[in-house]
Design a protein around this nucleic acid. Structure first.
Lengths: 371, 371
DNA sequence: CATCCGTGCTAATAGGTATTATCACATGCG
DNA sequence: CGCATGTGATAATACCTATTAGCACGGATG
């Protein structure tokens, strides 16, 4: 039994195991054990909650403490694997993290876009919610990254600039931002072109002969509200129509605010001939107020909305509105992954996708009215 | 250098490596190597696509072939971990698989319910879609199970009996069926109580004095349509109202079918005083036809819907309808995971959750009409 | 006082994967 | 022919984690 050892001796001469400290990247159970002053086995027991093992609460806590402090994570072998391995069933999994899923349909639409785009390549999409919770968000992301995903799409339900959580920067996979962006342009990002959307909605009204066009805004601190208003002003300026502050009423995206704002607008000595409601809910309230005032849409007054919510097509008359391009945004995000294999993480411009106007029957020519 | 060896000798005496065949459950790289006629190292190189390693295409293929044949999957340490570990970031991850996410809001609502219930325990929900695709479904499920989830919720968008995919049976984690069930009752399952829902909707109309109550069904092959109709008949029977086949018109869940069916009902020599539309879309068409006929809701005729879609509250008048309990179903599913730790996979009864009626303004007393 | 446990942990080891240092073997070259 | 050289694998080993078999020790017991 001793001869075989000899056989391997010459190669062993060149071996130099563990030259000194081993500042390896990963934190191992042994590290935790050292920090907690116990054995690796104990660490294993604690972290796995192994049944039938009795440990003092004290020790458990010390281990967990140390594990947290050192940032232990269990080994995952596939973390860095490319999206498509030659191995069926190990295909790429793309993580999709969103703050809220249920509050509005946009998230689902974006996911659907991403799914469609992923489908061809055989990639699977895993969706996690963070609820904007500072505790749960890292957990949700870790639940994905630890399990080995090949890319991460990070979406917010409201369009806005975000301070990207630190962990986004330390991921070693491509990250795409959807409906949000960071100030440092560190990630590819895509958002709706709200300015262009507000502009084309307004231009649509101008094209129908309207000159006195009111708008009911959303909550002014929201990016979308600011941009849609900006687009409104831009369209007016382009058509050489002077901006009249009286025609801008602040709403809060709600139907009741839309109602109130419309009542206010109708009280003006010179009434608008068209109202650009900056979202569809506002338009619902607006419809209500107009009907109460005995005005007919679109004969007496025209209305456009924004967002193309399900209800827009069921209003009477069906509402002309702008489609949020979340489907396209989801597709775009996946396409980004397919084209360049993460080109040295430089600065990425923010991509904006158009909000196409869908014409229904709430806009009429101004001809029938006094011009 | 030789003394230390001595130090370890006594324990070594007790070593008996690989006593014989080791039919362990998992397929290891060594198994693949044996099958492919190469070394474990080569297998590792191939499966990891290690850069800087040159291997013949032939060998690569042989390895992949063998790996597929044996059903290799990379090691995952957390696969059997309990839902709640003491370790932040290692918390339980619950998989939620649904065939379709975007087509209707129910899936999102159920996910929301599951999320709420998971949240307290700090569990993360990962959602995957299958699109009912026989190829993608296993992949989607594997994307979850391979990565170590502590439970799986399997949902279908339509309530129905399913032939559970084989892989559901071979999972070693709890599986809950949501909005579907298997004939063998192998998994805990929860569905809406559509019969009770149809019954209480009808009873609601009866309670308002209606005796001549029509119903417009959904597509008759769907379980939900059959059950809602069953509930309708049961309510009539309970109130000793004879069932009149003339008052049952087949629809297909669509508004246009609702419109056509209503027209047909209005053509009856003895008109119904109330219509139970078996979903809200049908009710939309129904409203349309009634208004065209000059009838007022609820003065002249009452209408109830089903599903409580968003639009129901925006109709005029707002529609009385039944709420699908998907939120509760999602919560229920999670609660099942928390209570019994998989009690020996026996036969589970199908749990049915109530569809509560939400009363709005589309139902009136029959008093004003000829009785 | 010796014994006998339960308790709380650890040593040792089994069983996996990743990686490094070679190695056998054609193949071309002088 | 003798030798470098590139190619396609492998052996041996480094490093992980999980698990089994005890070990030390304090307190109850006889």
């Amino acid at each position: 039994m001793s001869e075989p050892t000899e056989l391997r001796d010459p190669p062993q001469a060149s071996r130099r195991r563990k030259p000194a400290a081993k500042p390896k990247g990963r934190v191992t159970m042994t590290d935790i054990a050292r920090a907690a002053g116990c054995s690796q086995a104990t660490v294993s027991f604690v972290l796995n909650n192994s049944p039938g093992i009795r440990l003092s609460q004290q020790t458990r806590e010390r281990v967990i403490e140390a594990a947290r402090a050192l940032g232990y994570s269990p080994p995952v072998f596939s973390a860095l694997r490319p999206a498509i391995t030659p191995f069926e069933g190990l295909d790429g999994v793309i993580g999709f993290v969103v703050d809220q899923l249920a509050t509005s349909p946009e998230a689902v639409v974006a996911i659907e876009g991403a799914r469609q785009a992923s489908w061809n390549a055989g990639n699977v999409l895993l969706v996690a919610q963070t609820m904007g919770d500072a505790v749960m968000e890292p957990r949700a992301v870790q639940a994905l990254t630890r399990r080995g995903i090949s890319a991460l799409i990070y979406m917010t339900i409201f369009t806005r600039e975000i301070a990207a959580p630190d962990f986004l920067y330390s991921l070693e996979i491509p990250v795409i931002l959807l409906n949000c962006y960071t100030a440092d342009y560190a990630f590819p990002a895509v958002v709706p072109s709200e300015i262009a959307g507000g502009q084309s909605a307004t231009r649509h009204l101008i094209g129908h002969g309207h000159r006195r066009i009111a708008t009911i805004t959303g909550e002014p601190w929201m990016q979308a509200a600011q941009d849609r208003l900006k687009g409104y002003r831009r369209a007016l300026a382009t058509a050489d129509i002077p901006f009249d502050p009286e025609l801008v009423v602040e709403g809060d995206w709600s139907a009741s605010a839309g109602y109130a704002a419309t009542v206010k607008l109708l009280g003006l000595k010179e009434r608008p001939t068209a109202i650009f409601c900056q979202n569809d809910r506002t338009a619902i309230g607006c419809y209500e107020a107009l009907k109460e005032a005995g005005l007919h849409i679109p004969q007496d007054i025209s209305v456009v909305g924004y967002d193309d919510e399900e209800i827009a097509r069921h209003l009477f008359p069906p509402l002309t509105t702008s489609i949020l391009p979340h489907l396209a945004m989801g597709q775009w995000a996946i396409e980004q992954l397919e084209t360049p294999p993460t080109p040295g993480r430089g600065r990425y411009p923010i991509t904006k996708l158009e909000c196409p106007l869908v014409e229904r029957e709430s806009v009429g020519a101004v001809s029938t009215q006094l011009r």
